[in-house]
Design a protein around this nucleic acid. Sequence first.
RNA 1: GGGCGAUUAGCUCAGCGGUAGAGCGCCUGCCUUACAAGCAGGAUGUCCCUGGUUCGAACCCUGGAUCGCCCA
Length: 918
Amino acid sequence: MTEMNDQLSLENYSPFEVEKKWQEKWESLEAFSPNPEDDGESFCVVIPPPNVTGSLHMGHAFNTALIDVVVRFQRLLGKNVLCLPGTDHASIAVQTILEKQLKSEGKTSEDIGRDEFLKRAWNWKEQSGGRIVSQLKRIGYSVDWTRERFTLDQKLNEAVIEAFNILYKKNLIYRGEYLVNWCPESQSAVSDLEVEMQEVNGHLWHFKYPLISESGEQLDKYLEVATTRPETLLGDTAVAVNPDDDRYKEFIGAKVKVPFVDREIPIIADSHVDKDFGTGCVKVTPAHDPNDFAIGKRHNLKQINVMNKDGTLNINAGIFQNLERYEARKKIIKELDNLGLLTKIEDYKHTVPFSDRGKVPIEPLLSTQWFLKMDGISQGCLNEIDSKKPSFIPPRWEKVYKDWLENINDWCISRQLWWGHQIPAWYVLDESQDSIEQNTPYIVARNEEDALIEANKKFGLNIKLVRDKDVLDTWFSSGLWPFSTLGWPNTNDPDFKKWYPNSVLVTGFDIIFFWVARMTMMGNTFTNNIPFKDVYIHGLVRDENNKKMSKSSGNGIDPILLIDKYGSDALRFALIREVAGAGQDIRLDFDRKKDTSSTVEASRNFANKLWNATKFVLINKTSNNNYSFNESDENSLELCDKWILSKLNQVNIKVTALLKEYKLGESAKLLYEFTWNDFCDWYVEFAKQRFNNKETKNRQISEKVLIKVLNDILVMIHPFMPHITEELWHVLQLKPDNALLSLQKWPIHENKFVDNKLDNSFQQLFEIIRLIRNLRSELGLKPSEKGPVYLISDNDELIDFLKTLVGDIQTLTKSSEVFIFKNNAVDKKEFAKSFSGIISDLEVYLPFQDFVNIDALKERLTKDLKKVTIELENLNKRLSNKNFVDKAPKDIVDECRFKLNEGSVQKERITKKLELLN
RNA sequence: GGGCGAUUAGCUCAGCGGUAGAGCGCCUGCCUUACAAGCAGGAUGUCCCUGGUUCGAACCCUGGAUCGCCCA
């Protein structure tokens, strides 16, 4: 034996060393760094880039496990696989952290300026950026680290700038003043998607506006309005009623006066006004509400912005200037009350937009921003949906994706942040001029030099350029990820040519809009191709109480903790096998007091099983020269060899097909069951008997089959549990460290060993063995208490089959001897006092006269009789139904008849046996 | 308001037209040398309710209940 063998046979399974060893090997050998020139059909996955400064959470671990199974499987199939890793700059998240750091030093970003701020940001990225990467490595990710990308890399920045320029030239990007979602916390605009609606228990304030006469005098008549946001009244520029509302028809065209600011505003009719909301009169604040903004556009109303960017009221708010928005609300209510204008306060449940990141209410605010025109771009993707580009797995997500594309609004892509891709637009100013206005001309270009040349052409030489301060929405660069990482805009890049479009995108449903749709739209626009063929959408990992894991609720389960405890192989297998359904959310069991997870533990136990099965094979190997199983051995196979090979073939065929359809959970379960319940529980037990056998030929065959089956098990489980299988494969096959299981060939079995009849025979054998064990157990026999077993049947075929396996039956049931008789060859009376059981047409007798409790035996047989009688009744009912016999498929009917027959024999035998006992 | 998912053993979930499965837990025996991270045996289900289609429904279709998610 080699040193390796000794080690393995001595030590117990300890994931930590094994995983560390192979992770280092894979990386140092650059095992997963493919060459685009190499043969093999291309297969490419780009990973969803995690926040560069973040740390690994269970969602990453789940996503990683799924992707890695897919790419490792495809690699074993012989494809030229690229799995490209990287990280994301996460504008808002990182900027927020940095601002907090500054705040703790008593500074603001404005204090230190853009350059200094970015210097700090890059430092922070360098400092914390390694963590998520090293954590991903601990999962055993088979990605190409030599191609790792970061969304702010020089090359990726060039791609972003190119993309922006192309879109601008196509007139798809515009700049203008619109009502945007303003996050007062991060002091930036955010897109519609970054707004989360939350239901809150608020109030509906009713108050009245005095009507004024045509000459401008205040009348003693009022119009009552209702609102959830009284502070916005300072920006009201109309009151609107429904034109069909008889209550207010007479007032249309009249005017009311807004208190505090003494503004006279018209009463207008707009059919969008809901007569049943509040009083049926609504105040219209075009600068602070999306609906009002639309009404304002229809009626040409003035837009009066009353708010600053930090959420305080501005100069237009008059006496309320500088108050924070909710302070202002309180004060305005009080003042309205003082004026006698407040009429009613109702409790009111309504939805309020919250900033996804800042976790504060969004302020709809008029602001000049950059937008991407979406309708044409989304239509391009909609056109591809019917041809399954991309193809969603599971398919139900296609409708979600489609609905969103159909109802899309223009995308606000500018952010008032510094950490990110700065917008490649330069404002053209007079040399003396400093401020940028809404109508300041600008040039969009690839760099400042180009911009200057163009600006000089258009505006002469006496100008200066100032670059737009804003950065792009992080998702803008994420949308380019599938091709910017492969060299685009250089479409001749070998990587781009080989691996674009990508094969599959694997991600959670929560970012279908944020990311998946942005990628399809960007991809379709820039490469005239949907960037991936398939989209595999998985669910969320929820905690042990079925709650979404989140930082804010502090219920996250640390994947690294579970890896330390059980190993990455176990965690991966648990996530995939125990819990991964068809795109369903998964729940991970976790005991917070003990830091244990029974689901992950179960998978670790499976890994241990695999380890020990290999240990068994190694201990019993008679030679260092591996026997390789080949065709000449086929004639020497025993029945149990043929049986396990039949099972292996079937599992291989099924798992191969399942994995191609991304049915990862089902594959994992099948492999688990085959390995444990067929291979370890039965085949290894058969092999033990043969290893006691002196006959070399038989022993050799057994060894060969053991190694063959174990090898294929290791290869097939490798995508799921890459480390332990890599280790075991090496010691089993005596491979040097630079040969890798990861790069071997997936076994493809022809179905030549598939033998359903044999499977059934073995199934029957197992039932018989279980019955004998059960009888022994009921007798209370200790394993050491051996005794004879009699098997009696009329079925010649069964008798022959059992006779060839008589030795195995004996050992596996701890019997002293096993006798097999034809029914008519024995006198049943001899067995009258034996403990017995009956399976179809086979009677089993254990002649332990001294132990037998006749009442217990009777009870047992009566129970069996009852069971078989019920079954027979059901079968009879079905078979006596003419419709069933006529219409049901023949094999089903035949099966029923067979079972009826079998059951009848069993019933008859049990009855006779009972008679004998009485 | 619109859409989607879930409901199966004590718990977590597979199964999705031929009469119910796994893991964990539970009960009983076993240190049978690959594995106690294990072995053997066992108990446990109106497959949410309701109609309908079908020879046959946990599975397909009506309607409903409960829980959860997404969009507005």
